[in-house]
Design a protein around this nucleic acid. Structure first.
Lengths: 114, 114
DNA sequence: ACCATACCCCTTGCAAGACTATGCATAGCG
DNA sequence: CGCTATGCATAGTCTTGCAAGGGGTATGGT
């Protein structure tokens, strides 16, 4: 996961992947494109981050996967949310919103003259 | 950095520390208390994260430090922003706000029937 | 006098996860 | 036939947060 150039926050990639799958099954490449598109290209998804992340999510039982042909006649691995994945998405999304709100609040804090 | 219990997002601690110092010099303990207070106790700062982070910021030239007595007559190490630290704070804060806005946007996205 | 509770500093070792670099393969198009 | 977009995957590196431990000092209550 990157924000244009450098490294970014650990923990958000898994969350975004789960979110991408909320609307239905999708393959890795599609997930990456979806995240980039919906974020207005603010977020870039590196393949070297994506596939290990998918593997982790599958190991944890949050997604399942299967080979299928795309509508453009290509072999691709499709991922789908499990019930546990849905539950985790809800939890983590709530936690992230709370966390990011707290950080944003702090960053907007006016430095008062100590 | 923690959110009550577990692990949280890498990359934000340094930023929050710099922000804490924006109003003037502060010691480690004070930085931690400030972050917790301003966040309404949503964010917890572990000492095992804090001091290594301060060390890194100093190595990078973003903060300087010196021993001083607190107003309660205690020996404490005070940290202060350098010009480079101020510049980094501006950059990273902007990047973070942009990033978190993008993630939040995605999370609020309605899953449409694909 | 003593003890609990804040206050205050620091290190080692570990684990998680994102990135770079690299490699492979195939469909469609000019 | 080569180029581009589509697609998957791994090995190695690096950063960074955390748990678990180690110090020490001032102050107030009992």
């Amino acid at each position: 996961m990157a924000r244009g150039n450098g490294t970014l926050l650990q923990g958000t990639l898994g969350l975004l992947i789960l979110k991408a799958l909320a609307a239905g099954e999708l393959h890795g490449y599609g997930i990456a494109r979806w995240i980039e598109e919906v974020s207005g290209d603010v977020l870039q998804v590196e393949e070297g981050s994506l596939y290990p992340a998918l593997r982790r999510l599958e190991d944890r039982g949050f997604v399942t996967s299967r080979w299928k042909l795309t509508d453009t006649n290509r072999r691709a691995r499709y991922y789908a949310l499990t019930p546990a994945g849905k539950a985790d998405l809800r939890r983590d999304a709530a936690a992230w919103l709370s966390f990011s709100a707290a950080v944003t609040l702090i960053l907007r804090e006016r430095p008062s003259i100590a």
